[in-house]
Amino acid sequence: MKHRTFFWFILPSALAMILFIALPVVSVFIQSLHVEHEQVLRTVENCGPFGCAEETIVDREATRELREARPLGRFAGFSNYLDRNHLAITEIRGMWERSDSIADFTRRAMTLPFWRALAFTLTFTFVVTPFVLVLGLAIALGVNSLPRIFRGPTIFVSLLPMIVTPLIGSLVLYWMVDSRGVLGAFLQTVTNDPTLSLRASPTLTWIMLIVYGVWSSAPFAFIVFYAGLQTVPEEPLEAAMIDGANRWQRIRYVVIPHLMPLAIFITLMQLMDNFRVFEPIVGFQAQASATSLSYNIFNYLRGDAAQFGAAATTSMLTILGVVVLLAPVLIRTWRDFNRKGH
């Protein structure tokens, strides 16, 4: 295809991506270098029956004018990145010196919004992904050994948790595990603790969110693995059987190697999707015990006093995280591409 023709074909799509993905990233970067204007203060003299006193008041009119004239705020350089709400270098150093053990340090560091969110986001990403892989493979192997007529309905039901709107999926689960819901009541009976509430304990909240993550993503792994199982070649399986391999060995040495590229694909998709975990925290109303990077951005942006600077800074750090996460894949693809001899 000629460059010219290519250009015209790709133009609408490229324009949409440049205008609404690339430029917003630039806009986020610029915003991250600014902070909101401080309120304009004015000193007035109040004279009453007992003499005059000087008083400092907030000049609302001037503050509003200033904010309207320069909505970006004032330039702050990289100070947003270093402040308490983000990297918090000074605070971290102070905590390190003051704390007497690693556990103590961790406990203190978890009061810093950015590190707290990063800790949950990474835990969620790296716990959910392997569970999704294992559970998806187990279901796929199970369904594959079912009689054919049961497979369609099983796939139908399995697609529900994945397809459903994340916010809706998390609400549906949340209403069940709520202390007044059916699972909440069940857990209270099992543990014999009528005051048990998943929301009250940070650990249980984390577990609940991870369970939601696995529940909603396992179908994806299941479907991909199931499709892969349909294409496992017969011959190596038969050869393995003749050599006396039992079922487990056949799965271990023939089926799993065949599914390996699929596992890599699922891992990549899951890392990308789990890293932006956001809706479950809104749905489960878990912000007191768990926040994610995306949730922090959302939280800065909403309300009347939106902190655009803080939101933009967290966004930049999140994008940096995505690039780090994807770097191995990008490098690998780049090598493959070069090897193909372009």
């Binding site: 991506m17 609404f20 993905i21 430029l23 917003p24 990233v25 630039v26 806009s27 986020v28 915003q31 909505p71 970006l72 990308m272 890293f275 932006r276 956001f278 990077l293 995306s294 951005i297 959302f298 800065y300 942006l301 939106a306 655009f308 939101a311 933009a312 967290t314 966004s315 999140t318 994008i319 995505v322 690039v323 996460l325 994807l326 990008l330």
Partner: peptide
């Protein structure tokens, strides 16, 4: 890379 970016990071760029 664009596909991997959390949508909310872009939203913070649109608002202003």
């Amino acid at each position: 890379v664009f596909r991997a970016m959390p949508h909310i990071t872009l939203v913070s760029g649109y608002l202003l």
